[in-house]
């Protein structure tokens, strides 16, 4: 991964018939392009999940603390009375976005909504302690947090599979988060945004075309990630395999 924001600027300036510092025509600015690069990188990662990470989030027994620092300036709040959330609130680790999977004590937790949990068992909040089976991200939880329907009583760890949130670029020398292979598609989306801006330089036809080429790249990426799977996994020696 060695492509930089400047590489994108060099590419799009050619198509926009601008110089790489965007001073000839004064229609676009470098800072504007950097913003578009951030837009395109985040959008590409959100659509494809091309970069994933496995991270852990630890908690400490509820009787010991009411709050603690977690990571850089983020709090884990341990609620001794679990209402209204029914358990602790855990922050998504910094630099991550969509949670794909959560496991606790080596067992996968099922994703649920607060509404579904309450519909299934109105009294679930009255039994707040024990091994969790579900996690949820809605129901008034703070942004970028998740919670479980029960609190484990001992010091244990949640394991999360998350998509990586691309680093926000502020300089033209910044290295892109998205791997080099996909840089041309990032450039297509940046071009699309440049050509769809209000005012001078707008060219909706070329903007739409650029966006379709970007989406083509997204689909090529998704095809590689999803691949082609065969029959369901069956344990060795089971009846299904025989």
């Amino acid at each position: 991964m060695s492509s930089t924001v400047q590489n994108i600027i060099d590419r799009v300036s050619v198509d926009l018939q601008e110089d790489p510092t965007f001073t000839t025509n004064g229609i676009w600015t470098v800072n504007e392009i950097i913003g578009y690069v951030n837009y395109a990188e985040t959008d590409f990662q959100r659509r494809t999940g091309i970069l994933k990470t496995s991270v852990t989030v630890s908690r400490i027994g509820v009787a010991l603390y009411t709050a603690e620092f977690f990571g850089a300036a983020m709090f884990v709040v341990h609620v001794t009375n679990p209402s209204p959330f029914g358990g602790s609130i855990f922050p998504k680790p910094l630099g991550t976005m969509d949670i794909e999977r959560v496991s606790y004590d080596k067992k996968r937790l099922y994703r649920q909504t607060l509404w579904d949990l309450s519909r299934e068992n109105l009294n679930w909040k009255n039994n707040p302690y024990g091994r969790p089976k579900y996690y949820y991200e809605d129901g008034g939880l703070p942004i970028n947090t998740f919670s479980t329907e029960r609190l484990p009583a001992t010091i244990l760890t949640f394991r999360l599979f998350c998509d990586i949130l691309p680093t926000v670029n502020t300089l033209v020398t910044a290295t892109l988060t998205i791997p080099d292979t996909w840089v041309q598609y990032i450039a297509w989306e940046v071009l699309s945004l440049c050509l769809s801006r209000d005012g001078d330089g707008q060219d909706i036809a070329r903007s739409s075309y650029s966006h379709s080429r970007y989406i083509f790249g997204v689909n090529l990426c998704l095809r590689l990630i999803r691949g082609e799977t065969q029959e369901p996994v069956v344990a060795v020696g089971s009846e299904q395999q025989k």
Partner: peptide, 18 residues
């Protein structure tokens, strides 16, 4: 090896277990 995806694998086995 057989190719699968994490969702299907999760449904079939508890792959993190000891």
């Amino acid at each position: 090896l057989q190719r699968s995806n994490i969702g299907d694998l999760d449904n079939d086995v508890e792959f993190e277990e000891d």
